[in-house]
C-alpha cells in the first residue's frame, strides 16, 4: 500500500471534527472524498499535509511512518516534498507570474537550478494547457485558468500523490469542465489523487474509490462503482439518491 492512514482524530475547541478516519490508498488510486458540508473532509485532507495538526493518527507513506500529532519539522518537509496540494481558492502567489508561481518551489524549495526549473515548469504548464500564459499574473486569469496553474505548480514538484480540496467549487459552471479534464487526464496518466469533491460525475466515472464521511466518521469506503451502484448503508443510499434527484431535477 502506498499510503495507509490510520485513525485520524481532530477537534476544534469542544467540537470533534474527525473521529477516527482511516483510509488505504494504492498507487494510481483516485479516491473521491464525499460527504455533506461540515463532515470534516477539508480538515482530513489538511491533516494529511500537516496544514492542520491532528490530535492523533498515523500514516505510513511509501514505507515511512509518520505520527500525525508529533511529526517534527524535518519529517513534515520530507512528506510535503512528495505531495502536492490543490486548494479550493487556487492560492496562487499574486505577486508572481504564472511561470514564477510554478518555479518558486523548485528553485527555493528543492534548490533546482533556474534553467532546469524553467523547463520543468513549462512542461507542467503544458500538461494543463497554460504554457502560453507564462508571463501573465494570476489576476489576469480566469478562475479555471488559475486553478490549472495551481495544478501545474503541484505537478512540477513531481509528487507521488496530489491532494485536491474541492478544486472546482469556486468556479463558474462553464469553467469547471476545463479543470476536470485536466484531472481526468492526470488520472489516466496514473497519478495517485485524493479528491474532495461534490462533482458526482467525476466521483462516479474517474475515481476508483470513494470515502464517504459524515460528522467526522467514515460511513462507507470502498470501490466507487460499488458505492454508486450498491451502497451498503442507509446513509450512503440516501446520499446517492439525493444526488440522483439533484441531477434529474
Amino acid at each position: 500500500m502506498m499510503l495507509d492512514i490510520q485513525n485520524v482524530k481532530k477537534h476544534f475547541e469542544d467540537h470533534v471534527v474527525l473521529d477516527g478516519i482511516s483510509l488505504g490508498v494504492e498507487k494510481g488510486d483516485v479516491v473521491a472524498i464525499l460527504g455533506p458540508s461540515g463532515s470534516g473532509k477539508t480538515t482530513f485532507l489538511r491533516c494529511l499535509n500537516f496544514l492542520e495538526r491532528a490530535d492523533e493518527g498515523e500514516m505510513i507513506f511509501e514505507g515511512r511512518r509518520y505520527d500525525m500529532n508529533k511529526a517534527g519539522k524535518k519529517e513534515i518537509t520530507e512528506l510535503r516534498r512528495k505531495t502536492a496540494f490543490v486548494f479550493q481558492n487556487y492560492n496562487l502567489f499574486l505577486n508572481k507570474t504564472v511561470l514564477q508561481n510554478v518555479t518558486l518551489g523548485l528553485t527555493l524549495g528543492s534548490k533546482i537550478p533556474k534553467q532546469d526549473a524553467r523547463e520543468i515548469a513549462v512542461e507542467s504548464l503544458r500538461r494543463v494547457g497554460m504554457a502560453d500564459r507564462l508571463d501573465s499574473y494570476p489576476v489576469q486569469l480566469s478562475g479555471g485558468q488559475q486553478q490549472r496553474v495551481a495544478i501545474a505548480r503541484g505537478l512540477a514538484l513531481r509528487p507521488d500523490i496530489i491532494f485536491f480540496d474541492e478544486p472546482t467549487s469556486a468556479l463558474d459552471p462553464e469553467l469547471i469542465g476545463e479543470v476536470l479534464n485536466v484531472m481526468r487526464q492526470l488520472a489516466e496518466d496514473g497519478m495517485t489523487m485524493l479528491v474532495v469533491t461534490h462533482e458526482m460525475e467525476f466521483a462516479r466515472n474517474v475515481s476508483n474509490k470513494v470515502l464517504f464521511m459524515e460528522n467526522g466518521h467514515v460511513v462507507e469506503s470502498g470501490s466507487s462503482r460499488e458505492f454508486f451502484e450498491n451502497p451498503k448503508s442507509d446513509r450512503s443510499r440516501e446520499f446517492v439518491h439525493s444526488l440522483a434527484n439533484l441531477h434529474n431535477g
Binding site: 499535509n49 502536492a84 496540494f85 481558492n89
Partner: peptide
C-alpha cells in the same frame, strides 16, 4: 495577504522566511 498563499508556500516546500521574503 491571504493566508492561503502562505499555506501554498509551505506546500511547495518553502520555509517561513522564504514565504515572507518572496510572497
Amino acid at each position: 495577504v491571504s493566508h492561503g498563499q502562505v499555506e501554498a508556500g509551505y506546500c511547495v516546500g518553502l520555509t517561513f522566511i522564504q514565504i515572507m521574503a518572496h510572497v
